[in-house]
Write a protein that binds this DNA or RNA. Structure first.
Lengths: 237, 237
DNA sequence: CGTGGGCTTGATCTAGTTCAACTAACGTGG
DNA sequence: CCACGTTAGTTGAACTAGATCAAGCCCACG
């Protein structure tokens, strides 16, 4: 069980599902919830297992993935702070959830969580909104996987990452170079973009040679020319 | 507005969202809903337009699609009777919705529909369940688009279609040959599977030559050896 | 009959994979 | 503090699944 104060100082208190609840109501959730840390590379939920838990990301990044029976793997989504984790209303987990970085979560047993949801229409409504957004995102990813070239995928990925995490020190907008550390290895990027490690590496090299990005260290990326990168991401007609 | 009797004889009354409502409550929806037919190839919603309507499929099949700025297209989902159509809580439509077959719909103006939803928790709950299912389906499709071979995609597609529409006269299970008409052209199949027309055609020919399927007419397919087709759909390790 | 859309089939091309070597960074224990 | 093994990343050469380009085919419909 969570301590009564846990949520007051929670980083995502006002962005996650729980923002639908008053401090009073939150007590109900606290009674069934548990704080937990998942270390990088650890797996929280295995695809095919009984769906016994769900969670909310407090800090860190998770990946959602599936694979074919002969082991080809694909990451089907990333989960960031305030995102909801897990399936509801189904007895088996459809996807594997594992940590890309050390991640803090609020974990709930699924069935009791569904009950809380049932009793709090506003929370259920918020979850519906988020699920719609996730569906839209997934469908956009389908276009990427089916029709975009390797260059477009890598460029688009960098832009997305820059928007997500490159703005922490927020160099505002404009074209000033932005630097950030990728939370994913080349292999993880490849799995997300539906490519191979080699192709991701080659595309990054090409962008570097073209002067559009710099790669100051293995994990860091500097976007030197955002407009050009946008051009590569959407290699227009 | 719909006639008071419209729903009583509705084919999807007990499977669609409205199954969450009593006949009484349905009156509210009827007041804002309209029956409408969309002819094959007609488009109900254009991606990027204001999101003014949503709908429930009563009969027929719709496709959901997007495209890149230079015109590469991808179908991201099919909608069957009882499925919910359209986005909610967003002002612009994210995808184009068009008819693969002549389709009957119950169309609602979006904002009033959201209001009804808001007042009927059970209906909102049902929509949440369906949206979760749609999300899971979309993610499965991502694996297909990113990692499956052309043969696996076509074989899997035929199996899915057979389950959907080949079971109308229901030859039960077993391996008796099943015949059905594809509601999609080769081009539409290609757009759905992330392939080209030629590749789809060639894969169908290969399956025919292998004796796994027959193609009695342009649109009809006979599955002669389901087990073999399943083998091709999941070309294991 | 002829015309056109949907389909098939063949020949060629290419983006991205695969296989293979090599290099850079990192941490561990001597 | 440095050798050393390990893991992540890069780069090159060869290969291939599927795309692209290009005829033809087949039936439906005027």
């Amino acid at each position: 069980m969570l301590s009564a104060h846990a949520c007051v100082e929670c980083a995502v208190r006002d962005r996650a599902l729980c923002s639908a609840l008053t401090d009073q109501e939150l007590a109900t959730l606290n009674r069934i919830g548990q704080r937990r840390t998942v270390a990088r590379h650890e797996t929280l939920i295995w695809s095919g297992d009984d769906s016994v838990i769900c969670a909310v990301v407090v800090d860190g990044i998770l990946k959602l993935s599936t694979s074919t029976s002969d082991g080809r793997e694909q990451t089907v989504g990333l989960l960031y702070p305030a995102d909801f984790v897990g399936g509801l209303f189904a007895d088996r987990a459809g996807f594997t959830v594992s940590a890309l970085t050390d991640t803090d979560l609020c974990v709930f047993p699924r069935v009791p969580f569904e009950a809380v949801l049932h009793d709090h229409a506003r929370m259920e409504h918020l979850l519906l909104e988020r699920t719609f957004a996730a569906l839209e995102e997934a469908r956009g990813r389908m276009l990427m996987l089916a029709r975009r070239t390797a260059e477009e995928r890598v460029a688009g990925f960098l832009l997305g990452m820059a928007d997500r995490i490159g703005t922490v020190g927020c160099r505002a907008i404009g074209d000033g170079p932005v630097t950030f550390d990728l939370p994913l290895t080349r292999g993880e990027i490849a799995e997300l973009l539906g490519l191979t490690i080699e192709t991701v590496s080659r595309q990054l090299s090409r962008l570097k040679v073209a002067g559009i990005i710099a790669l100051p260290s293995l994990r860091a990326v500097t976007i030197r020319d955002r407009a050009a990168l946008e051009g590569r991401a959407e290699a227009s007609a």
